[in-house]
Simulated assay, not measured.
Amino acid sequence: MIRFRIPALMLGLAFVASCAPTPQPVSVEAPPVDFLLVDKSDRTLALYRDGAEVRRYTGLQFGDAPLGHKRFEGDERTPEGRYTIDTRNPNSAYYLSLRVSYPNAQDRAYAEGQGRDPGGDIFLHGQPNWLPAGRMPGDWTDGCIAFTNAEMDELWRLVRDGTPIEIRP
């Protein structure tokens, strides 16, 4: 008699488990994402695949002047707008890096109209290579978006060159 109860109990538990929403870890073999959304005010990055959010990172770190759109070289702001991830650098001074296509034509035109350089080299990257472990405190980049090294490992696997990224205020 016990023999029949155990399979029925296991079947019941499997059904309940399949109905419960559980967060899905990102698999090493997960397909790439097709859109990134950064919300500077919430300090989050959401990764999307086929219109569905598949992963969210919190506690992002930005440039020393995190409010407002990047306008000029050295203003320490993180850009806002629509860009793409246009290249990757495994040998960065920071743990892995994915370059954002800033400046776009509008950014260049604005800066040129002010007689200034718009700057560039904006990346999603990990912590400085000299930091043995952990995370730098506060906002510390020159306009980039910083993650933990473990988060960068995931991003490196999930984000391909050409992936659109939107950075909202």
Rank of each mutant, 00 (worst) to 15 (best):
R49H: 04
R49M: 04
R49C: 03
D50F: 09
G51V: 07
A52L: 15
E53P: 12
E53H: 07
V54P: 11
V54L: 09
V54D: 06
R55Q: 15
R55I: 07
R55L: 13
R56W: 11
R56V: 15
T58A: 15
T58K: 14
T58P: 06
L60V: 06
L60C: 11
Q61V: 07
Q61Y: 07
F62E: 00
G63E: 02
G63P: 12
D64P: 04
A65L: 13
G68N: 05
G68P: 11
G68W: 02
G68C: 05
H69G: 05
H69L: 03
K70L: 03
K70D: 01
R71G: 07
R71V: 09
R71F: 08
F72M: 09
E73S: 02
E73A: 01
G74Y: 02
G74I: 02
D75L: 00
E76P: 03
R77G: 02
R77W: 01
R77H: 03
T78C: 02
T78L: 04
P79C: 01
E80L: 01
E80I: 02
E80R: 00
G81N: 05
R82S: 14
R82D: 13
R82C: 08
Y83K: 04
Y83V: 07
T84R: 12
I85K: 01
I85W: 01
I85G: 02
D86A: 05
D86I: 09
D86H: 06
T87N: 11
R88Y: 05
R88L: 11
N89I: 05
N89H: 04
N89K: 06
P90A: 11
P90D: 07
P90V: 07
N91T: 09
N91L: 11
N91Q: 13
S92L: 08
S92P: 08
A93E: 13
A93D: 12
A93Q: 13
Y95W: 11
